[in-house]
Simulated scan of single mutants.
Amino acid sequence: MARCGRVAADASFWPTAHGRIYAMDTTITLFLLQDGTINGAIYALLSVAFVLLFTVTRIIFIPQGDFVAYGGLTLAALERGETPGSVWLLLAMGIVAGLIEMVRERHRLNRRRLTTIVALDFILPAALVAMAVLLAPLRLTGVGAILLTLAIIVPMGSYIYRICFRPLSDASILVLLIASVGVHWLLTGLGLVFFGAEGYRTTSLVATNFTVGPLFITGQSVLMLLTTVAILAALYLFFGRTLAGKALRASAVNGRGARLVGISPYSSGQLAFAMATFIGAVSGVLISPMTTLYYDSGFLIGLKGFIAAIVGGFASYPLAVVAALFIGLSEAFAAFWASAFKEVIVFSLIIPILLWLSLRSTHVEED
Rank of each mutant, 00 (worst) to 15 (best):
P289Y: 02
L120H: 09
L174E: 13
Y295C: 05
P214T: 06
L150N: 04
F54E: 09
L329F: 09
A233P: 01
L73K: 00
A69G: 12
M224T: 15
A272F: 06
S12M: 13
L359T: 06
I345E: 01
T16W: 12
I42E: 01
A9V: 14
A272I: 06
S180A: 11
Y200P: 00
A233Y: 10
T292H: 01
L33T: 00
G284K: 06
F333K: 11
D10L: 14
T218Y: 02
V261S: 09
L33H: 04
R80E: 14
A244D: 11
I38Q: 10
T208Q: 13
I310L: 14
A234Y: 07
T29Y: 11
R112S: 14
L140P: 12
P63Q: 00
S86R: 04
S180G: 06
V346E: 12
I123H: 08
L187D: 11
L359F: 12
S221G: 00
R259L: 10
L89N: 01
Q270P: 00
A207M: 03
H363R: 10
G305W: 04
A281Y: 05
L303M: 15
G94R: 05
L286M: 09
G85K: 09
F122A: 12
Y43I: 02
I146Y: 01
C4T: 13
T208Y: 09
F67M: 12
W14D: 15
G219Y: 02
S348C: 08
F239E: 04
L286R: 01
L147M: 14
V7C: 10
Y317F: 15
S288H: 09
V229P: 04
R139D: 04
E105S: 14
E82R: 12
I59G: 01
L135W: 11
E82H: 14
M156G: 03
F216M: 10
A308M: 02
V175I: 15
S158Y: 08
R139K: 15
T242V: 09
F194I: 05
I62M: 03
I60Q: 05
A276D: 03
T115G: 14
E365Q: 06
F194G: 02
G240H: 15
T227P: 03
L120A: 12
D296T: 03
V193G: 00
L75H: 02
L186M: 15
V206H: 02
L168F: 12
T115Y: 11
V282L: 04
T242W: 07
G219M: 02
G85I: 07
